[in-house]
């Protein structure tokens, strides 16, 4: 929030104001104290753990990012027709979209994952006969499928809100110019809706990075899965601190990149603010 307003004030060469920098320094001081306290409580860092598992941690991060970006990406594609169905006046399309959104937003992701993963296992014979068993047998694929369905529901609600927030005059003007329905949607409505939706979509991306840790419960070796493995083998609790550090870095990097993206995509609005 503050970063947006700070950098949109002066368009090109804005730097953070001193008050902000002071807050940053304060944060680092506190963080340093926390780390120092942690180092004091936990007597020594077990470098053997780091040495033995660091490459696995890196692989884990890679898997986490694959999970997140694939499911958020496909979920974004899925969310558009769902949002449109949710906005449509056709009763069945509306009802179907509403049921889908309510189910996936109203139940825990973990329960959904169990439902799809173990539920599919129950139907393995019929899945084999349709030739889909290779997909449902693999926890990684099932996790992506479940996460996609989940984030698709959340993103559909975000897009619905964004589309609804646009002034009606936009569509009416396009109609008056003789534009037909789909060009209006893709060239007038959607670009503006994405500007509105950018921030909540960024939040959703970050929520998925954190939520993807759940995949480890069905034995996917993402960052959390690798961590559990390292802990189970070494019985060293420090395994979790390294994971925490890596998750924090991942979330912070994505957040900052998204802020950049948002500033760049809304630069035509900078003066209006």
């Amino acid at each position: 929030m503050s970063e947006i307003t700070a950098s949109s004030g002066a368009t090109s060469t804005s730097r953070k104001p001193p008050a902000n920098r002071q807050a940053m320094i304060d944060r680092f001081v506190v963080l340093a104290i926390v780390v120092a306290l942690g180092a004091w409580i936990i007597p020594d860092i077990n470098w053997r753990l780091v040495d033995r598992y660091w490459d696995r941690y890196l692989e884990g991060i890679l898997v986490t990012f694959q999970l997140v970006f694939l499911s958020v990406g496909v979920g974004a594609l899925l969310s558009l027709p769902v949002a449109l169905a949710r906005l449509s006046e056709r009763r069945w399309a509306n009802l179907l979209a509403r049921g889908y959104i309510t189910f996936f937003r109203g139940t825990p992701l973990l329960a959904q994952l169990f439902l799809v993963y173990y539920g599919a296992g129950q139907f393995n014979e019929s899945l084999q006969s349709v030739g889909l068993w290779w997909f449902f047998r693999e926890p990684f694929y099932v996790a992506i499928l479940t996460f996609t369905l989940n984030t698709g529901a959340y993103q559909a609600e975000i897009m619905r809100g964004a589309i609804q927030s646009l002034p009606r005059g936009q569509v009416e003007a396009a109609e008056a110019l003789g534009m037909t329905r789909w060009p209006t949607f893709f060239k007038v409505v959607l670009p503006q809706a994405y500007v509105v939706a950018l921030r909540p979509l960024g939040n959703e991306l970050i929520l998925m990075i954190k939520g993807s840790a759940i995949a480890s419960i069905v034995t996917v070796l993402d960052l959390m899965g690798v961590t559990s493995l390292a802990y189970a083998r070494s019985f060293n609790f420090q395994a979790f601190f390294w994971a925490a550090l890596l998750y924090l870095i991942a979330v912070e990097v994505v957040r900052r990149l998204w802020d950049r993206l948002e500033i760049r995509l809304t630069r035509h609005l900078a003066l209006a603010r």
Binding site: S212, A213, F240, A244, Y247
Partner: peptide, 11 residues
């Protein structure tokens, strides 16, 4: 806030 909003709830 930064730490506990950035970490996965599971972790």
């Amino acid at each position: 806030t930064t730490v506990f909003r950035g970490l996965p709830e599971l972790l």
